[in-house]
Every structure is written in C-alpha cells, then in structure tokens.
Design a protein around this nucleic acid. Structure first.
Lengths: 280, 280
DNA sequence: CGATCACGTATTGCATACAAAATTGCGCCT
DNA sequence: AGGCGCAATTTTGTATGCAATACGTGATCG
C-alpha cells in the first residue's frame, strides 16, 4: 500500500538493535531480554527475536546459558586478530586477482579508485588543517578499493568470509580512518597506505600474486598501528565503530569486583536477571 | 521435567533441515517454502522460520527475491576457495601458537595426537586392505589435531572465523578423508599429511611462526588434491559431506535448459513458485 | 488473436496468546 | 540462624490466526 513500508520489521529491528549496541546503550556484558527490546523498539517479539538471533551470528551478542542474550565483550586482542584475519583474506583476494591476470579493462575501475585516492591523500597532506570532508572522501574511496579487490578475486566464498569478519565493525577497512585523522603521524600512515594501494594495484597488474598477498597483509597491519594509538588514549577508542564494545582487562576486573556475587552466579551458568527493571 | 526434551524445536528444525539439504532431499536451486518444511518436519512455522534464517547465515540457503528460501548451489571453485580460506586461517592459528612459545606441558596434548596419528597412519599403510575402522580413527585424531592447533592460538576471533568457514561441511578438515580411503594414492597423501602434521608440531615447538604458517597452508592444499580426484569421478563427490550441494557447470546448464522459461522468470527477479506441489 | 487488467489464491510476515522453564524470594524446617 | 525447598512471577519458547503482498490465471477489450 504505502510506498516504502515494505521495509520489514525484522530489518528495522536488526538495524535498531545494532545501533543500540554500537552506540553503547546496551553495555557489554549486559543481558538483553526480549521484552526490553520489544518495549524499546515497539516491534513485536517475533521479529525482535529473529533479529537477536541474527545479531548472535554476526557476533554482537551471545546466548546466555539459561536462554536470552548478552552483549558480547571484545578485547583489544580480538580487534587485533580480526584485523589480521581480514588481512589474510584480502591477501588471498589480491593473489587470486593477480593470478587471474585480469585485462586492462577489468583493472580500470581499480586504477581510477587509486588515482582518486592519490588526489585525496595529496590534498590532505598539503593542508595543515585537513578538512573533515577530505577524510570522508578518503573513506569512500578506501572502501571502494577494498570492495574492488574482493570483486576482482571473483570468489563468492572469499566475499562471504570477509563479509562475516567485517560484520564486527572494528574489523572493517575504514574502522580507524576517522581516528587516524586526529593522530599526529597521520601523514606518515596515509603515505604508507597509499604506497601500498598503488603497489597492490601494480602487483595485480603484473600477475605478481605472492607480492600482492604480502602487501595486502601488511596493509591491513596499518590498522593495527592505529589500534595501538587508540589503545594509549582510550577516549579515542570510543570513536572507533564498535569501540564501545571493547572492554580492556582493566575494565573487566572493575566490572567483576563491582558485580561480585552476581558475576559469580553468572559464571556458574546460572541465568542472571536485571534485578528491578520496571517499564511502562 | 523430562530428561532430554529440553532440546528445543528450533534445534530440531535446524538439524533436520540441514540433514535434508545435505542428504539431497532438497536439491540445489530448489525453493523451500515454509509450509513445505513445516509439513515435512511437523514443527510449527516459527521455529522452522528461525532455522531457515540460521541456515541462510550458515550458507546453505539464500533468500529468494520475492521472499522465501532457495537451496544454494556450490561450484567446485567454491570448495577450492573454502579450503584455501581454511588453510589461511589455520596458518594464522599455528603462527600465533608458535609465537606464543607455549610450554612443553601445553604442547603435550598435541604431541599425543600426532603420536596417535603416527600409529594409525603406519597401520593403514601396512595393510593392503585397510579396515574401515582405521580410517574412522584417523578422522577422529585428525579432527582433534585441527581443533588443538586452533585452541593453541588462543584467539576467539580466529575460532569464530574458522567455525564459520567450516559450517559448509566440505570445508572441514575431515571432509575428504573418507573419500581418500578409496583412492589409489592414499598412502602417498597420508604420508605427506602426517609429515606435515609432525612438522607443524615441530615448528610450533621451536617458535618458528612463519614455517608453521606455510606448512598449515600447504597442508590444507592436500584437500584440494583430493578434490581434484573427486572431480574426475563425480560419483565420488557424492560421498563428500555436502557433495550433493555441488553443481558442476555442466549440470547447471542441464538444469537451465530443463527449466527453460521458469528459470528465465526467476532471473528477472520474479518469485517462482513450485507449480503444483500437492502434499499429504 | 494477442495483450493487458483484474481477480482469486497461496504464501510470506507479524502479532498475540498460550504453555513451559527458570529464577527469585519467602517460608519452613532443622 | 542458616540452609533447603516450594511457590509465584517473570521470561523464554512455540503455535496459531490474521493481514498484506505477490503471483498466476482467466476474461475482456483493442
């Protein structure tokens, strides 16, 4: 009937819940009851329940032993490993791409993206106070670059695995770019990154599979360098997509001592309910 | 109250549907309607629907444009790539394991598994007609080996990604072992595989991360060799877990010509309904 | 004779109602 | 006074009913 409302409730529930988790409304370790979510979203239990199950597969929540869902906690090591995994998968992608020996026409879109990145990066490096808009451009073309190398691999399975890894937002190629904009050594990092972009393109064009793979892996590790920076200033971490899900070992202990008995009960596999949660 | 019936309907639905798909009752490309599944399973629509959604995330089915699910088709390239991805992830796992420099006590379980594999392999190679039981033993210890190297990596994210890849059964480490039992060059393959097992263990023990990674990757490629064997005799493919989901380019064309107009309609994004599907 | 529009039917999607399981709090017994 | 057990309430899990959407078929008009 109405023009757009074919957007199903499931999708709405999924998006809203993901947003609530990422924005920190639901804190890591917190238990999400269906009724909570239903009351918050105004959507009935069936689609909410389905959305929560999907979020579990995406890794945002895990099922509690007694039933129900809890928001997952992630450590800095988890982010570190996710980046490494993404690098390995992108490495396979560019190796496949190189070994297929794509024609010039096929490589043209990637060439254009790299050229666009060249322009954006050089502009950012020239200006002392780079405009916010410039970084948005960088995010756009950087994302496109990563999409294109995966597309060039022509491997549905590879795309599937990468999509799964990047469902955790801090594993995506653009996760640390906005943060990078505020760091001191951003010019150095962007320079290195752009050299790697060009080198990967060159390696694919030359059919140098091994070189392309090594480059892609090392390229991903640039994100780990940014991660270390964010690690030192934890307030920066809050700006990283999904950064609110990260709980340091320090915080973990704090939580533990704060929740004392309750946490112990949860550890024994007991269901832990939020004590008094009156609503409406 | 009752001892076991706490096994929920969702899980039953998931298991049964997965079994129906893997056993070939639902053929690749076939549309699965909820009502079909409900009638077949005797479970109400809600858990069936949820199970189908889960199967979608596992990769067994995909959503049809007009709604509903269709059984996914996999090509031999998809299997090839899945194995490569598993190899890459296991490579990271053993590199992490090596770089952690685990103590002797920590490595002991892996040592025992490798020793057990030594025994099984040497027994299989001695006998002219190796007992079926021996291969079952091999499957058990081989699976344990792969579990243990992932555990040694101590990386939840890595475990998560591997679990996702191996949700497609033909990507699992043991997928081709039963098939391997029937091939001519099984002694050679098992010999190589076992040497690799030992070498990986040695590399982890010595802290040789790069070597361990290279070995794990090459080890996974043994499965690709088996895949090539199965490729030549497509009847062998039916013995591989999930092999019924594999549709060669040849079969794809056959299906296409057979379904002619209907397939064309589906290609335009129209919903395609099974014409007359009387039941009961 | 063909094409288009309208109507009928079947299937998906959502919401609610009901049943079962579990946890918490209270009471009783030791 | 403390621990164990029972009961009540909250919450999850399942089933069914209803509404909306989309497809197929038939009829009518050009």
């Amino acid at each position: 009937m109405s023009p757009a409302p074919r957007s199903h409730q499931q999708i709405q529930a999924l998006l809203k819940l993901r947003e609530l988790i990422l924005s920190g409304v639901f804190t890591p370790g917190e238990r999400i009851s269906e009724l909570d979510a239903v009351a918050r979203l105004g959507i009935s239990r069936t689609p909410v329940r389905l959305a929560l199950t999907l979020l579990e597969h995406e890794g945002f929540v895990s099922t509690s032993p007694g039933g129900g869902f809890i928001v997952r906690r992630f450590s800095l090591e988890d982010i570190h490993d996710s980046i490494e995994i993404r690098g390995a998968l992108e490495g396979i992608a560019v190796r496949y791409a190189a070994e297929r020996r794509p024609g010039d026409a096929e490589l043209e879109p990637l060439r254009e993206t790299v050229a666009a990145l060249d322009t954006v990066v050089s502009r950012i490096m020239k200006e002392k106070e780079p405009a916010f808009e410039a970084f948005e451009n960088y995010v756009e073309f950087n994302g496109r670059f990563h999409e294109q190398i995966v597309a060039l691999a022509q491997s549905p399975m590879l795309g599937r695995s990468l999509q799964h890894v990047e469902s955790l937002p801090f594993a995506s190629p653009n996760a640390f770019v906005q943060l990078q904009a505020q760091t001191e050594d951003r010019t150095e990092i962007m320079l290195i990154g752009q050299v790697q972009h060009r080198s990967i393109l060159e390696a694919i064009g030359n059919g140098e599979g091994g070189r392309a793979e090594a480059l892609a892996r090392e390229h991903a590790r640039l994100a780990r360098r940014n991660l270390r920076t964010a690690q030192q200033q934890l307030d920066l971490m809050r700006q990283v997509p999904g950064g609110t899900l990260v709980v340091s070992a320090q915080d973990l202990n704090d939580n533990k001592t704060a929740r004392d008995a309750g946490e112990a009960a949860a550890a024994t596999g007991q269901r832990r309910r939020t004590p008094n949660h009156h609503r409406r």
